[in-house]
C-alpha cells in the first residue's frame, strides 16, 4: 500500500514538474528574438524575418506589452545610418557620374 502511494506521489510530482514553465520556452526567449537582441534585425536571414515577426507577436501577446522590441527597429536605423552616412571609395564616383548625366540630359533637352 505504501509502495502504491509512493508511486502515485512520485508520478504526480513528475507531472506537476513537467507543467512548470521552463524559462527557455518562454515566448520572448526564442532563438530569433535572442539573435535580434544581440546582433540586430539585419542578422536575420530572409526566411527568418517572418518567423521573427511571428515570435515577436507571440512574445508581445504573452507579456501584454505591445512596444516590446520596438527599439530594435530604431537601433537598426542607427546602425544603417552609421554604415552609410558618407560615401566610401568608388561609390562617390557613381554619384558624380549620375549627377553629371542628369545635368547633361537637362541641358541637352533644353537646347
Amino acid at each position: 500500500m505504501v509502495k502504491i502511494i509512493l508511486i502515485f506521489f512520485c508520478s504526480g510530482l513528475a507531472v506537476i514538474s513537467a507543467q512548470v514553465e521552463n524559462p527557455e520556452d518562454h515566448p520572448c526567449r526564442t532563438p530569433l528574438i535572442e539573435k535580434v537582441k544581440e546582433h540586430g534585425l539585419r542578422s536575420l536571414k530572409v526566411w527568418e524575418v517572418p518567423v521573427f515577426y511571428w515570435d515577436r507577436f507571440q512574445c508581445r501577446k504573452s507579456i501584454n506589452n505591445s512596444r516590446y522590441l520596438m527599439n530594435a527597429n530604431m537601433e537598426q536605423h542607427e546602425a544603417d545610418f552609421e554604415a552609410s552616412k558618407s560615401f566610401q571609395g568608388f561609390t562617390s564616383c557613381i554619384a558624380y557620374c549620375s549627377i553629371a548625366a542628369v545635368f547633361v540630359f537637362i541641358v541637352s533637352s533644353s537646347l
Partner: peptide
C-alpha cells in the same frame, strides 16, 4: 548600379 548615402537616420 546605385550608390547612396544617408544624411539622416531615415
Amino acid at each position: 548600379i546605385e550608390s547612396f548615402y544617408r544624411p539622416w537616420k531615415r
